Amino acid sequence: MPYRLLVFDWDGTLADSEQRIVAAARSAIETLDLPDRSHEQVRAIIGLAMSEACQMLFPGIPKSQESRFVACYREYYLRNTGTPVPLFAGAEATLRGLAAQRYQLAVATGKGRRGLDRDIASHGLQALFSTTRCADDAPSKPHPQMLEDIMEELDAAREQTLMIGDTAYDMEMARNAGVATVAVSCGMHDSQRLLEFDPLTLLASIAELPAWLSARAR
């Protein structure tokens, strides 16, 4: 059965947002006088909902401090309104081309709703996505609910659905939902870690996806 629903992660898959996320998280850490965490430590949690990310960065942190961290992070992330978060090279053209081929496109991300909607709107991509799910809508990855909700809303079978992502959290979420995956190595987790989840393929970037889909359909 050919794929008709393509579900994309956002950060690290479509959006080259690592620097902005890490900067916002480290600013929140400094503001709240929490123990310092390195760029690499923060980078490793990108893809999770920020509440789960906070628990990974600071195991056992009280819920009250976790809530303050999430709010502070979001304030810093949303403060930079002048320059849109950049997309990876070829990402916009890829999305527009796939939509023109009548694929249904969706997003499943650990971002908050305000940040996701702002990022999508800043590139004028709202009309391309049939639906989106984020950390405000469902449990954090790797819980499968985001994918399950998207498939239910769009009436897509698991066999018709493909998850495209750059982290082990994306791969594990898809596995938990019974959905096939394509991994991209341009984002947060290295190729070796992604290959542990047996994706159908590992691409260098999202721009390679249309050619792979075309070859698979022959």
Rank of each mutant, 00 (worst) to 15 (best):
Y3S: 00
F8N: 00
F8I: 03
W10Q: 07
T13S: 08
D16P: 00
D16S: 13
Q19I: 07
Q19C: 04
V22D: 02
V22M: 04
R26G: 11
A28S: 14
A28E: 12
E30K: 14
L32F: 05
P35D: 04
S38A: 09
Q41C: 01
Q41A: 14
Q41I: 09
V42C: 11
R43C: 15
A44F: 06
I46Y: 12
G47T: 07
A49V: 02
E52S: 11
A53W: 09
I61C: 14
P62D: 03
E66D: 12
R68D: 15
R68Y: 05
A71Y: 02
Y77M: 10
R79I: 10
N80A: 15
T83N: 10
L87F: 13
L87M: 14
A100R: 13
Q101E: 15
Q101F: 03
Q104K: 11
A106F: 00
G110K: 13
G110T: 08
G112Q: 13
R114E: 14
G115L: 06
L116I: 11
R118A: 15
D119W: 05
S122T: 11
G124P: 05
Q126D: 15
Q126P: 02
L128P: 07
A135P: 00
D136I: 12
S140R: 11
S140M: 03
P144Y: 03
P144C: 06
P144T: 08
M146S: 04
M146K: 06
M146I: 03
E148L: 10
D149L: 14
M151S: 05
E153G: 08
L154N: 06
A157L: 11
A157H: 08
T161M: 00
L162G: 04
M163I: 07
M163D: 03
T167A: 05
D170F: 08
M171S: 06
G178Q: 02
V182D: 02
A183I: 12
S185Q: 12
M188A: 07
M188W: 04
M188H: 05
M188T: 01
M188L: 10
D198F: 01
P199W: 08
S205L: 10
S205R: 14
A207S: 13
E208N: 04
L213K: 07
A215I: 05
A217H: 12
A217T: 13
A217I: 08
